[in-house]
């Protein structure tokens, strides 16, 4: 019986070792050029792109207007991969130094001072790290991107002018 367990151990590692090592190498090698948001909102279920593409088919670049609380610039760039899956890259120039900054997308025609009721949560910022967020269907080609500090309970930034590149 003990010999059987030794054989099982050998078989398990003969399978697991190459599988795990290859998977780690593939996972690390396939990391997107910019990290993806780890938060996938429930509203996006079934609508996310199947994969990230390092070369988007098009890119729209926006500046970001920021309120008094947001002391760093943030670049916002929209894009889509060749299969048409849309995303937005949010790149802070530095650490926003604000508590729990959430990234929302909303219809630009939405009015009001607060967070629009139909705004879609895309994910959270992670300090100064540039992040890529998937955009769900149903939003305009170039939605309004809002940065909302959950800790301060206020909008701290909103996307503005758009320039089409490439």
């Amino acid at each position: 019986m003990i010999a059987a367990l030794r054989r099982r151990h050998r078989v398990m590692f003969a399978v697991l070792a190459p599988t795990v090592l290859a998977s780690v190498v593939v996972a690390v090698g396939a990391r997107p050029d910019r990290p993806a948001s780890s938060v996938t909102p429930r509203e996006l279920l079934g609508q996310l792109p199947q994969d990230l593409s390092p070369e988007p088919a098009y890119r729209l670049t926006s500046g970001l207007a920021f309120g008094a609380e947001l002391r760093v610039g943030v670049d916002v760039a929209f894009g889509a991969d060749p299969r048409g899956s849309r995303f937005v890259d949010v790149s802070p120039h530095g650490d926003p130094a604000l508590p729990d900054v959430l990234v929302y997308a909303a219809d630009p025609s939405a009015g009001g001072d607060g967070l629009p009721g139909d705004a879609v949560l895309l994910g959270t910022l992670a300090g100064a790290a540039p992040l890529r967020f998937a955009l769900p269907d149903g939003l305009p080609e170039e939605p309004l991107i809002l940065l909302y500090s959950l800790g301060d309970q206020q909008i701290v930034g909103a996307s503005l002018v758009t320039v089409r590149e490439g």
């Binding site: 019986m1 003990i2 059987a4 367990l5 099982r8 151990h9 398990m12 590692f13 697991l16 599988t19 795990v20 998977s23 780690v24 996972a27 690390v28 990391r31 997107p32 910019r34 990290p35 993806a36 948001s37 780890s38 992670a126 790290a129 992040l131």
Partner: peptide, 30 residues
Amino acid sequence: PVWKALHMLVYVAWALLVLHVALGSLQVEA
């Protein structure tokens, strides 16, 4: 023998956890 066979599942757990990290936290940092 049965107890050891059961506890050899730790190798499966290890493989799952390595993948959990590789596909999780490593994807959100550069």
